[in-house]
Nucleic acid binder design. Sequence first.
DNA 1: TTCCGTATATTCGCTGACGAGTATACGGGG
DNA 2: CCCCGTATACTCGTCAGCGAATATACGGAA
Lengths: 210, 210
Amino acid sequence: MSDRRPVSNPLALAVLSLLYERPMHPYEMATTLREREKAESIKLRFGSLYSVIDRLEQEGLIRAGERIREGKRPERTVYHITEAGSVEMRDWLRELVSTPVKEYPQFEAALSLLPGLPPDEAIEMLELRGELLDGMIEQIDARHEQAANYGIPALFMIESDYRKRMLECERVWIRQLIEQMVEESWADIELLEGIPTWRQMHAERNGGDE
Amino acid sequence: MSDRRPVSNPLALAVLSLLYERPMHPYEMATTLREREKAESIKLRFGSLYSVIDRLEQEGLIRAGERIREGKRPERTVYHITEAGSVEMRDWLRELVSTPVKEYPQFEAALSLLPGLPPDEAIEMLELRGELLDGMIEQIDARHEQAANYGIPALFMIESDYRKRMLECERVWIRQLIEQMVEESWADIELLEGIPTWRQMHAERNGGDE
DNA sequence: TTCCGTATATTCGCTGACGAGTATACGGGG
DNA sequence: CCCCGTATACTCGTCAGCGAATATACGGAA
């Protein structure tokens, strides 16, 4: 582990918070999480469910309770959260809310390697991304409107409101970047760089390669 | 694998883009990446370096060249990018730039489980996060100023400019969320929810638990 | 000359992640 | 009453990820 958390898979947090509400058996956890569409905002891989539950139990954060058989279906073990589990859940949540962690969005990686693409191609791809972002934002809007009609309270929508805001923000940033690149205003920054140099670099690469 | 990419570790993309510049041996790749502080924007775990290189070679994206011995140091294998490797690199980059992928920031998970925290605590943690974000933004500013003084061109700073913008955006969003929560304006949303109900839920939990 | 701290260069072993597979049970249609 | 598609419930094997250990070399100080 060496991890910050005793069981670091985010699925574990979801499990804890379900059991904090009420005891459940594993399969019910999976269906409940699916019903609530938690997988939209949390990285949940249900293939890891049973191993996560085992580790939570070993750490004493949950405990196995009744084994119930309904009809001729296989026995199901109902799990309960323990006191230590409740503490862990709250502590984990507090940490996640209060402390920004360094994450590595793939787009950031791409930006830092952007010179690996010829500039015109880069611009083209950025434009495409912009359009796709627009589409995603629209989709979220539609879902929000629908939710409002169903009377779902805003408290249940903060995650997606947050995501929407971030997408909008990225969208604006990209628009501005494209503008700058098209104006070649990179060249203003004096010194070696700027779009012309970048373009030249790729032009030279044609012919004398590996 | 079953992955979108033949070698999906982001370190592989970094390796490809280094070898696209010039042939190198593994340790040199590591030091170069460190020098350029690529680990700021790309998730690089150098423990995976050699296994990534092996897989890249197996996939025919790079090939081992000369084995060089300098002084009495151990032999080092210099790797070259292949044509297929260049293609893969460009294609991967194009995809990363053009196509937004669903990622799972931990904060989003926290937001979607926020009701697991009593509301006053939630507000407190959000305020703390806000302050920490301010600090991070200042740090980026400082680095940018320094870079400008050294005459480092803006092209080399886009990743961090992007990150800065995202942080600022999150900061604003959080400020607004706190405002709304403090005003209890969640209650406006009519129906079951709102801060009062949320608070009550946690109050009831004292005494009749697992 | 000898020491040792730091750089060089790589290997290894554990463990978590998770897709894909398995097996049984229910229930509705024919 | 039988069939089979879908839901229920879980297991397993593989494999990538990566921290930590290892080992040797260099070079400056004493």
